[in-house]
């Protein structure tokens, strides 16, 4: 028996990465800003998206959302009330979204990304698995609510480190749960130095103006003359 070596040197998720890169190219051409929103279950992704979609539509922007869940289309039904185009991706037990799911749903959806300003992808509630899967997004947004504990970023470094922006949600409950804001910000910065952080309440409206201004500026930057 002679041991032999066969070189492979291939990323395990190469298929996903290649697909994501082609999605990103398509989104760029269309001039649509794509945000991949990740968090643990119950941290308020849908509530913040509801407010965000309503605000963007009221300002005359065209926005749509793809919503991933293991089962049920409750979230999509909630978001559709904003008037935006919304489509549910039911993953049948899969704990994260993958690039092919985004591609397939966009193909089957009577919606032209070319006609959009914003596309939100609400990932499955999970702070582990979605960190591996590029969906072709421009911005990965990680959310955590004040009820979850200050050490969440330290517990899930890959997810926080691979994200671009953090949104702290439910700040209207901060006092009731004795939320240590400074410690949370320090923990986020430890895992992801220099991260842009928003502090919001979808219910009371705190921080929403800043959040909307930020994503509008990001989308304008895409459409600026510097872009092809």
């Amino acid at each position: 028996m002679n041991p032999r070596i066969l070189e492979i040197r291939k990323g395990v998720l190469e298929k996903n990465d290649v697909l994501a890169a082609s999605l990103r190219e398509r989104f760029r051409k269309a001039g649509v800003l794509v945000l991949n929103i990740v968090s643990s279950p119950g941290s308020g992704k849908t509530a913040l998206l509801e407010v965000t979609l309503a605000r963007l539509l009221a300002q005359g922007y065209r926005a749509a959302a793809l919503v991933g869940d293991l089962a049920t289309d409750n979230d999509a039904a909630r978001l559709a009330r904003s008037g935006a185009s919304v489509r549910q991706i039911t993953t049948s037990g899969n704990c994260h979204l993958e690039a092919h799911m985004i591609g397939d749903h966009l193909r089957d959806w009577a919606l032209e990304v070319e006609g959009l300003d914003f596309l939100f992808i609400e990932n499955v509630g999970n702070l582990v698995c979605p960190s591996h899967y590029d969906l072709g997004e421009d911005i990965r947004v990680v959310m955590l609510s004040v009820t979850e504990g200050e050490d969440k970023p330290l517990k899930y470094p890959p997810m926080f480190n691979s994200s671009d922006v953090a949104v702290i949600t439910k700040v209207d409950l901060a006092e009731a749960v004795e939320f240590d804001r400074d410690q949370t910000v320090a923990n986020i910065n430890s895992v992801r130095p220099g991260m842009t952080i928003f502090e919001t309440s979808a219910k009371r409206g705190a921080g929403i103006d800043e959040w909307i201004a930020y994503i509008v500026a990001q989308r304008d930057a895409l459409k600026s003359p510097a872009a092809p």
Binding site: R4, L6, E7, R9, K10, G11, L13
Partner: peptide
């Protein structure tokens, strides 16, 4: 000094496989 200039650590890659020629 804080740094986000990550040089390695994100790998998830098959380097090679071993087999026998019998």
């Amino acid at each position: 000094t804080p740094s986000m200039d990550i040089r390695s650590g994100r790998e998830l890659e098959i380097a090679y496989v071993e087999y026998s020629d019998e």
